[in-house]
């Protein structure tokens, strides 16, 4: 019983803390689930709210990156579709780094965008993202040309 109360107290404190932060930056983080934050960052990207998109991704990585890295470290290959959802933190955090790169690109913060893309390409490369059209895709694979494009843009006048 004591353990349950301790857990509830901790959970309550954490929620309160998170709620206070939500008020601070004016964003609605919903239930703070990694998938919620990932979806909200996609939505913000589509609405042209690039700073908000970055904030949602930062919240996601702040809360779940440690777990995501543990999942990445446990893998030796990209998970198959029947178990991919077991790696929820890896998938959401990896996707958030990709979205952050996209949003920072729109904000013309190219060096920061490259840094975000490189995290998913070089460190969270087993992450997979679900496309509502019906398939998984690899944020790592998608980040690879994004980095090259940004580096090309900084070297040549496109």
């Amino acid at each position: 019983m004591k353990q349950i109360l301790t857990f509830l107290a901790l959970f309550s404190a954490m929620s309160l803390s998170l709620a206070e932060e939500a008020v601070d930056d004016g964003l609605d983080y919903g239930d703070y689930a990694s998938v919620t934050l990932q979806v909200k960052s996609w939505d913000a990207l589509g609405e042209g709210k690039y700073e908000d998109a970055v904030k949602y991704t930062e919240k996601c990585t702040e809360l779940y990156e440690e777990e995501a890295r543990k999942m990445q470290a446990s893998l030796s290959a990209k998970p198959s579709s029947d178990v991919v959802n077991e790696y929820w933190a890896l998938n959401d955090v990896g996707t958030c780094y990709f979205i952050r790169g996209e949003a920072l690109t729109k904000l013309r913060k190219y060096s920061e965008a490259v840094a975000a893309f490189k995290v998913v390409k070089d460190e969270l490369y087993y992450a997979q993202a679900w496309d509502p059209k019906g398939w998984y895709w690899s944020p790592s694979d998608a980040a690879y040309p994004k980095i090259a494009v940004l580096e090309a843009k900084t070297k040549s006048d496109f």
């Binding site: 690879y144 040309p145 090259a148 494009v149 040549s156 496109f158």
Partner: peptide, 12 residues
């Protein structure tokens, strides 16, 4: 971005 992307894909 479209120009840089097209160039980059070719090169890669």
């Amino acid at each position: 971005t479209k120009a840089a992307e097209t160039y980059t894909v070719y090169k890669i």
